[in-house]
Design a protein around this nucleic acid. Sequence first.
DNA 1: TCAGAAGGTGACCGCCGGGTCACCTTGTGA
DNA 2: TCACAAGGTGACCCGGCGGTCACCTTCTGA
Lengths: 235, 235
Amino acid sequence: MEPLVLSPPPPAADLSRRERERLARRQAMLAAALAVFAEKGYETATVDEIAERAEFGKGTIYNYFPGGKDELYFALFEEVVGSLHGIIEREAPGPEAVQTRDDVRDGFRRLMAGLIEHFQANRGVLLLFMKDGHRMMLQPEKMAHFAGRFAEIIDAMAHPVEAAVEAGALRPLPPRAVAHMIMGNVRGYLMAEIDADCDPTGSTERPDFGTPEQAADFITTILFDGLLAPGDASP
Amino acid sequence: MEPLVLSPPPPAADLSRRERERLARRQAMLAAALAVFAEKGYETATVDEIAERAEFGKGTIYNYFPGGKDELYFALFEEVVGSLHGIIEREAPGPEAVQTRDDVRDGFRRLMAGLIEHFQANRGVLLLFMKDGHRMMLQPEKMAHFAGRFAEIIDAMAHPVEAAVEAGALRPLPPRAVAHMIMGNVRGYLMAEIDADCDPTGSTERPDFGTPEQAADFITTILFDGLLAPGDASP
DNA sequence: TCAGAAGGTGACCGCCGGGTCACCTTGTGA
DNA sequence: TCACAAGGTGACCCGGCGGTCACCTTCTGA
C-alpha cells in the first residue's frame, strides 16, 4: 500500500494517548478509503471493503464517520484539495520571479514538475478526483462548496500568471483561463500516464518522458514556446 | 431533450416497416440511455429510468439489449467513438495542408473548432466519456478494446502532426504525445464550460470565449504560438 | 371476425450494499 | 480480582436496482 498524502496528525503534539490513538485510527480509515475509492470509484466502492482494508469492523467506521461513505469521501476531498492548494502556494513563483520571459517559463516549469511529482507519488489522490469529481454536481449544496475550493486553486495559479502578463512576459490572455489550461495539461499528462499503466495491451501510448522533470519540460515547451517550429518572431 | 448524435439509421433504405420501426425504437432507447448516463453516470443511472424516459416498459429494453445496462452503455460508446473518429478523419488537414507553419496552425485550429462545436451540441456524449470513461478499466477484456479505439483516435490525429513535423512546420516532438495534448486541451476546454454551467454559484470561471471559433483561437494561440509574449525568435 | 403470432409490459425475484445496534472485548481503577 | 466504562464488532435489516417471465395487447392475414 502506498503511503498516500494524508498528513500524519499535523498538530499531533501533547494529546492523551487515547486521543492520539483515535487520530491514528481515523487516518488509517481515511487511507483505506482513499485506496478503495481510487481503485473502484465512489459508487462501486463499499464500506465493507474500506473497513476490511483498514482492519476495522464496519461499525467502527461509523463511529468515526457517522455520515458513512459520504463523510469519508468529503473528508478525503478536503485533505486532497488542501494539499494541492498548499503545493501551488508554496511553489508558485512570486510576482518578482515572473518579470522576464525566462523567469516565468522556468517558474512554471518548476511548479508543474512539483505537481507532477506529487501526484505520481499519490496516484490515488488523482484518481479520486478524476473518477468522481463530477459525481457531486448532483448535490447542489456540496457542489457550491467544491466549486469554491476549485476556484481557490485556480486563483492561486492565476496570480503569478496575472503578474507575468502585467510584466509583459506573457501574452495578454485572461489569467484564469490560462491557469485553467496549465492545470488541465498537468492533469492530462498524469491521466495519460495512468491510462497507459492500466492498459494491459500497450496500445495506449505511454508518454515516453519518465521523470517529472522531463514531463514538465515537454508541457512547458508546448505551452510556453508553442508547437510551431521556431523561425522569425511569432505572430 | 437534445437531438444527440446517434446517427439516424444511416443505411436506412429499403427495409420492411417492421425493421424500420425496430431500428427507430432502438435509437430511441439509445438516446434515452445517453441522456440518463450523461446526467447520472453509469452506476447511478437505472434501467427503469432509461425505460421510462424512452417511454417503453423495462422488459422491452431487454428485448432490444439482452445484455441490459452494460450493452446499452457499450453500444453508445461505439457510436460515440465512431463519430469522434469520423470528425477527425474528415476535418484533419491532409499531409499537403501541413507544409507551412501557417497552414498547420490553421488546419488544427479548424479541426479543434469542429470538435468543440460537435461536443457543444452533444454534451451528453462528452459527459458519458468523462464521467465513466475510467469505469471500464475494471473489466480487462473490455479495457483492451477501448484502449484500442482510443489509440485509433490518437493515431488519426497524430498523422497530420507527424507530417507537419517532417515538413519542419512543427517542433520535432513525439507526434502521438502532441496529439494527446491537443485532444486533452479540447476536452479540458469543454469540461471547463460544462463545470461552469453546472455551478450555481458562478465561482467557477466561465470561459469567456463563447463560440467554438473563439475557443479554438484561444487554444491554438497557446498551443501553437506559445504563452510567452512574442519577442525575438523563441529558443 | 377471429386465430395466431409478435412482441411490449411491469409485477416480481434475489442480491447487494448502506446503515444500525445489541453484544462482547479490552482496558482501567480500586 | 472484580466491576464498570469505552468502544469495537458483525449479524441483521431494508430499500433499491438489475434482470426475468407469464401475461396481455396489437397487429396480421385469412
